[in-house]
């Protein structure tokens, strides 16, 4: 079950998958897909991890598009683990992505890992102002801001789960990619970005809301 909340002028829904949906705009937003991560690790001489994180992530994205009927999509950066990973995208995965993009407005936001995919179509920009919100990869600017980058996670009832963070001014999305770790919300970087009264929206079988743990 999604959790509905307000950010500035927008009525938004945090979804249990970690995606954000904006019904009024028909907009689905996901962050930090890190597609091609296993390929990048192998290239750099690390372990040969199961090369399935791209289909695994695309499958979940496809399900979210299906469930929401989104007409436009914002990928908030670090969509690919690096540019070479974007170029090395498997043909089947590329076609899958292109099929999902067809008929939708698709915005790629630049991340710190990737300046965005080069030749996949869609628009590519550093940040995207839309309907009174501003979408960028990393939080820290002005406006009602939607960002990713940090992969926040929080402990609830003994479990560590990915979560959204929001204080009414900023919204930070959890990572959507299959092979992504997380940063505990107690980390100074996240503590500094969120004003008092911030909440965590915890992902899982359903979204749960709790106060953001402060320290």
């Amino acid at each position: 079950m999604p959790h509905s909340f307000r950010l500035g002028p927008a009525d938004l829904q945090a979804r249990p998958s970690g995606a954000l949906f904006w019904p009024a705009q028909g907009l689905l937003c996901v962050s930090d897909l890190h597609l091609g991560k296993s390929e990048r690790l192998a290239r750099r001489g690390g372990g040969l991890l199961p090369p399935y994180e791209t289909p695994a992530t695309l499958e979940r994205l496809d399900a979210e598009l299906e469930a929401t009927g989104a007409r436009q999509v914002v990928c908030l950066g670090d969509s690919f683990d690096d540019l070479a990973a974007a170029e090395a995208l498997d043909e089947a995965d590329r076609l899958w992505l292109v099929r999902m993009m067809a008929g939708r407005m698709w915005h790629w936001i630049e991340g710190n890992h990737d300046p965005g995919p080069v030749d996949l179509g869609g628009s590519l920009r550093a940040e995207l102002p839309l309907g009174g919100l501003i979408f960028r990869h990393q939080a820290g600017g002005d406006g009602f801001e939607v960002s990713g980058h940090f992969h926040p996670k929080v402990r609830l009832a003994g479990q560590s789960r990915r979560c959204f963070l929001t204080d009414g001014q900023r919204l930070i999305l959890p990572a959507f990619g299959a092979y992504t770790g997380g940063l505990r919300v107690e980390a100074p970087a996240l503590q500094a970005l969120m004003s008092p009264g911030a909440r965590a929206i915890v992902t899982g079988p359903r979204c749960l809301v709790m106060p953001m743990p402060r320290c």
Binding site: L49, G181, L183
Partner: peptide
């Protein structure tokens, strides 16, 4: 110490189970 770059091996396990069960 700061940003966690590793992710849990549980994720790899789940992925393999799903996409390559005879691995």
């Amino acid at each position: 110490s700061g940003r966690q770059a590793t992710f849990s091996s549980d994720i790899l396990y789940d992925t393999l189970r799903r996409y390559d069960p005879d691995h």
